[in-house]
Amino acid sequence: MIIISISVGVIFSVVTALGLIRLPDVYTRTHAASKSATLGVLGILTGTFLHFLLIEDHFNPQLIIAIAFLFITSPVSGHLIGRAAYMSGTELAKETVRDDMKILRKKTEDPK
């Protein structure tokens, strides 16, 4: 069980790095970073928790708090980065088909 969860964590961390290297623009990179990095670190922390619980017989509540905290805050930070990048005018990838928030950006840039 420890081996399975740590393997899932390692695989998804590698997927995060590959996604950050290969994807074309900021928004797809935040997509890769927020989701797969969350699952990767959750897998590794679950493996650590199970190792300390099953092998060394030591219950550690800090790891549970860390798992819950990362699960809540990592998508939030991904959302904040994407929104800040859009509002500060980072351009989309050239494969983008439609941009529904263009009206909002124009309104923000010049408020009258």
Binding site: S13, A37, G40, V41, I44, L70, G78, A85, T90
Partner: peptide, 18 residues
């Protein structure tokens, strides 16, 4: 862009945790 670097820093923090 700057947002790319912030995304990378966020992911670096998470990787450092693991």
């Amino acid at each position: 862009s700057i947002a790319d670097r912030i995304v990378a820093l966020d992911a670096l923090g998470v990787a450092l945790v693991s």
